[in-house]
Design a protein around this nucleic acid. Structure first.
Lengths: 198, 198
DNA sequence: GTCTATAGGGCGATAGAC
DNA sequence: GTCTATCGCCCTATAGAC
């Protein structure tokens, strides 16, 4: 099976392809997409650079796969957490905890690549990723609207969504895992900053 | 005069060099530093690519000059605005207005490059830029501490500084100049989101 | 200060053997 | 599915003329 008959964002069931995507996520995050060569990537997974092009048509296709993984797996985690939450307040907390865990936790470099490598995505590939991003942000919007209706946060929820996501995204620039705060503590304190009722 | 006898971050008095930096800022912001070639830059200023290296030793030196310009000019503007402000509340507003004007206004691509191209800066060049960034953030910290003492914002000012700067930085990803909000209106509404007393 | 010309190397991607 | 070998291109930076 070659990749020509794949849908744009398959569930990455194929484990070899999935492994490549995970390794690429780390390299792209650490060095940037443009600075990471296909030779770097091949070496990191124990392949010659040419062999990568059996699994992906282009280097950009790898980037798109990384970004799609980052946003879909975070969306999945958020959906699971929201299903367990039993109040607007708990749902609100889930937004912060899932996002920061995905961004700062030990498993995921992919979400960070999603946030910081948009400029390297071609016009053709953008729409598909935007759909995935919008789906994630729609979950945020729902929860924030519910929280505002319950008097937990200020009512300007569209701007609130954008500012909060900006705050969380930026945490990768300064958060240190060996610092004073755990990821969960950070999530709690960031939530506290925007709550109207302590 | 060659560039070998220049200080690390001169006031960019030389107007030819300054022009190069301004044009580079726009290209680096729009295409990214790595994707922008010295040929692109030469063409944009009407020079052959080789001629650029009379003004700068390396391409990276251009990036560093852009980033230094972005942060120092924003710091200057903030200092001027703070000198005119006559209350903690006015100072707080100045933080938002200056930052967003610098980031989203018509004159500055340099600050955006400062925020998003750190990965391309060599280890040797980073410390100098970090000093400039810390100077800017120290101004923020002072004003936020004063605002917290006056009961305007929550008291966790170190985290508040980081989350607010993240919120503002992220605005470049979604703000549209032809949209419903002017930059000043946006600054007011973002400020409103974190004020304890309306 | 800017030009022409090019050195010297790295890049993404392909072809064909196994 | 992976390897070896390599194509053709583009990159930053330099040398020397003007």
């Amino acid at each position: 099976m070659n990749n020509n008959d794949k849908k744009p964002f398959p569930p990455e069931e194929n484990s070899r392809r999935m492994e490549l995507v995970r390794v690429a996520a780390r390299l792209f995050r650490d060095q940037g997409y443009e600075r990471t060569t296909v030779r770097d990537l091949g070496q990191a997974v124990g392949l010659q650079s040419g062999s990568l092009f059996y699994h992906f048509r282009t280097k950009e296709e790898i980037l798109v796969a990384v970004m799609a993984l980052g946003i879909t797996s975070t969306t999945d985690q958020l959906q699971q957490a929201l299903a367990l939450a039993r109040s607007p307040r708990e749902k609100l907390a889930a937004l912060f905890h899932v996002h920061l865990t995905s961004l700062l936790g030990d498993n995921q470099a992919a979400l960070e690549v999603m946030l910081y490598e948009w400029r390297s995505v071609s016009e053709e590939a953008r729409p598909g990723l935007i759909v995935l991003r919008d789906r994630y942000e729609a979950l945020w919007q729902e929860v924030l609207d519910e929280a505002a209706a319950a008097g937990l946060v200020k009512p300007d929820t569209r701007l609130l969504r954008r500012t909060l996501l900006g705050s969380l995204h930026w945490s990768v620039q300064w958060y240190r895992r060996d610092g004073a705060l755990t990821v969960d503590q950070l999530a709690d304190r960031m939530l506290e900053l925007i709550l109207l009722t302590p």
